[in-house]
């Protein structure tokens, strides 16, 4: 749509040497990708991504839109996300962030103004299902110990 912008973007890519070891993903504004990305180090999304994204660092920029599942360590969201977010370390949601879905996090920071609709789960917390199983295990252990004493 913007011929001037796409031409200047092409010029920049040609003039800068591409580092194949950087493991970087960059989805520019106006670009749309459907699919699955794995093994990336840094992912910057200013366009639209639909699918599954696994990357150490994920950055959904202000104009970026994400739909699907994402797994990463440090995640920053300034754009729209619809789906599941799984952050192993730091999750930062800026005031322009708009999220719908399930968020699993270790450390979360949300700026005043962000919109979140869905479920928040802390990774360190014992979920109800796992607490039941550990209790059962403990009971089994106690029973075994009692049998041993007899």
């Amino acid at each position: 749509m913007n011929d001037n912008n796409s031409e200047s973007a092409n010029d920049e890519i040609q003039s800068t040497p591409i580092d194949n070891d950087a493991k970087a993903v960059n989805i520019g504004s106006g670009v749309r990708i459907d699919g699955r990305i794995e093994g990336a180090e840094t992912s910057d999304i200013s366009g639209t991504f639909i699918g599954t994204l696994k990357s150490s660092n994920i950055n959904i920029n202000g104009k970026g839109a994400f739909s699907g599942d994402m797994l990463g360590q440090d995640i920053t969201i300034s754009g729209n996300v619809d789906g599941e977010i799984n952050s192993e370390e730091y999750l930062t949601i800026n005031k322009s962030g708009n999220i719908k879905g399930v968020i699993e996090y270790s450390s979360l920071q949300v700026s005043y103004g962000a919109k979140i609709q869905g479920t928040l789960r802390h990774r360190g917390s014992v979920q109800s299902y796992s607490s039941v199983t550990t209790d059962e295990i403990k009971e089994d252990e106690v029973n075994e110990n009692q049998e041993g004493d007899d």
Binding site: V110, I116, Q117, G118, L120
Partner: peptide, 17 residues
């Protein structure tokens, strides 16, 4: 309507905007 969350808090909840 508006939310602000600091690092370190432990939240297991459903958020309704």
């Amino acid at each position: 309507q508006n939310i602000d969350i600091q690092n370190g808090s432990i939240i297991n909840a459903d958020l309704i905007y």
